[in-house]
């Protein structure tokens, strides 16, 4: 991919950090406010997509980030399944809230037991997965040769 003009690059550099921060905020507050793992993960992916659109990339970095993001995506999925399995093994039911520190207080970040870690796992999976989709569609020359 070719990069874009310096104007875009400066703005993108300013915005990408904020986008990433906002994405992680949404992921972390999924059990308190609207949003959650998916919405936040999309924002995180958008930060990465913005950077790679603005600054461009060469084939081998694209290939590396594709591999990396698909690995991270799988790890996020495995993490999520493990969290759900924790309920199955530790308590009784699949997806049961396995945490022992209370079932959730309104407006309190560390509450709700497994929902916060589950949201983080989904955020990782969606963020990495969407970025991988972007690379596969947008920078597809190398993926197709595989």
């Amino acid at each position: 991919m070719r990069g874009m003009s310096p104007v875009v690059q400066v703005i993108a550099r300013l915005l990408a950090g904020l986008l990433f921060l906002f994405g992680t905020y949404i992921v972390m507050h999924g059990h308190l406010t609207p949003g959650g793992g998916f919405a936040g993960g999309v924002l995180v992916a958008a930060a990465f997509i913005l950077m790679s659109l603005a600054f461009g990339s060469v084939e081998h970095t694209e290939r590396n980030s594709y591999t990396l993001s698909s690995v991270v995506e799988s790890l996020g999925g495995v993490l999520f399944v493990c969290l759900a399995l924790a309920g199955y093994v530790a308590v009784a039911y699949f997806f049961q809230n396995a945490a022992t520190y209370g079932t959730g207080t309104p407006l309190k970040l560390i509450s709700g037991g497994m929902i916060l870690p589950a949201n983080i796992a989904i955020g990782i999976k969606v963020g990495a997965g969407l970025f991988a989709v972007f690379l596969a569609l947008g920078a597809s020359r190398f993926v197709m040769k595989d």
Binding site: V71, S74, V81, A84, L85, Y88
Partner: peptide, 15 residues
């Protein structure tokens, strides 16, 4: 659960 977990694990181990 089993096929779902393995669908995530297969790409990891295949690397």
């Amino acid at each position: 659960i089993i096929p779902l977990a393995s669908a995530f694990l297969i790409p990891l181990f295949a690397k």
